[in-house]
Amino acid sequence: MTSPLVDAAWQPSPLELSRRALRRRATTRSVLLALLSTLIVTAVLVAVVANTPGWTVVRETFFDPKIGLASVGPIFQGLLVNLLVLVIAAVCVALLGTLLAVLRSLRGPVFFPLRLLAAAYTDFFRGVPLLIVLYLVGFGIPALMIFPRMPAMFWGTIALVISYSAYVAEVLRAGMEAVHPSQRVAARSLGLTHGQTLRIVVIPQGVRKVVPALMNDFVSMQKDVGLISVLGAVDAVRAAQLQVAETFNFTPYIVAGLFFVILSWPMIRLTDIVTARLNRREQAGGIV
């Protein structure tokens, strides 16, 4: 070991200092070039769009600041409904998706009916568009008259859970199958049951492998939660539709879209950060 005095007295060599300065200059040049190219492309796009024949009509119809500011309040109130549905649906999707993934990973002929049901569920609801699931759940189940009258937000949440749990189940199953079989064998040799092996060994490692894919599914659900408006729920999209009906102007749709962008942008950036971090760990030989 080197002594603390030697560590404290260490200074980078002139060659290392020159390399650092070169890297700083290269980084600065790259940032300036990226900024300049972005400004040029933006200016060209603005000039092209502003000089189109119908730009004046489009600007008045879609980008009216007065109407946009007036619609912010009602649309934000509707966005709170979307947030509530999103939180509830995300928790339920995580639970149901994990259950389906576990059912599909059960081994042995005695569990074949459960595996078959889970596979049929995931195959069917991954193939059916979410909009059709919303119609089937929101209008079909209440028509059976076996449940008390429930708000449209409730049925929209159920439809989201049914549809997205199929996607999340397949992502989780892929992560669980990516865990090396030796991990299961080692856990069973230590006396763990099949359920304990899944809960303690397989599922934690499998989830870690598919974190970026799960986060992307969550980002997608953040957008699709706006589709519950087709059932009559007064969310951000429905509130924008009501404002459009009052003003005969489409600016409220732009406001609603911006709200959804603001809602999803932090998770999008977090997904990129987590993905880059996992890639660095994998390239460095760490455990992902």
Rank of each mutant, 00 (worst) to 15 (best):
L270E: 03
R277S: 14
R59I: 06
A70R: 14
P65F: 04
L227W: 00
R29C: 07
V288R: 11
V102H: 07
P266N: 11
L96T: 03
L36S: 12
P129Y: 02
T2N: 10
R126N: 09
G257S: 15
S18G: 12
D272V: 09
M1N: 12
A89M: 03
L39C: 01
E282H: 10
V31T: 12
M1A: 10
A94L: 10
P181I: 11
V288Y: 06
A94M: 10
P142V: 03
T247Q: 14
R199S: 06
A119E: 12
A89K: 02
I75N: 02
A159H: 04
F111A: 15
Y135R: 09
V207C: 02
E16H: 08
L80R: 09
V244M: 11
T275A: 14
Q283Y: 08
L33F: 04
L45H: 10
R59A: 15
L99V: 13
V31Y: 14
L270A: 15
R277I: 09
M1H: 07
T56K: 13
T157I: 05
R20V: 13
N279E: 07
S229K: 00
Q183A: 10
G285H: 05
G140D: 04
E282P: 05
L198M: 15
R20S: 13
R184L: 09
A8L: 04
G226C: 03
Q196I: 03
P204L: 04
L278W: 07
P4K: 00
N51Q: 11
F154L: 07
F260H: 06
S220I: 12
D272Y: 07
Y135N: 11
P252T: 12
S105W: 04
R107H: 12
P142E: 07
V44R: 04
L242S: 13
I75G: 01
T42V: 14
V288M: 06
R277W: 11
L15I: 10
G97C: 02
F250M: 15
L45Y: 10
G286M: 11
S18C: 08
L99G: 08
P65N: 05
A186S: 15
A118Y: 02
A187Q: 11
A240N: 01
A43V: 09
P4W: 03
S163N: 14
V171E: 01
V128Q: 03
T61F: 14
P14C: 01
L263D: 09
V211E: 01
D235V: 08
S229R: 01
I287K: 11
V137F: 05
K66A: 15
V234P: 11
P4S: 00
T56Y: 09
V244E: 14
W155G: 00
A43M: 08
L198V: 14
P151S: 06
V110F: 12
M1L: 11
R280G: 06
S3N: 04
A239G: 00
V219K: 12
Q222T: 13
V57Q: 13
N279G: 04
S220T: 13
V72Y: 03
V234F: 06
F260I: 05
F248G: 04
S37T: 14
A9H: 06
A101W: 00
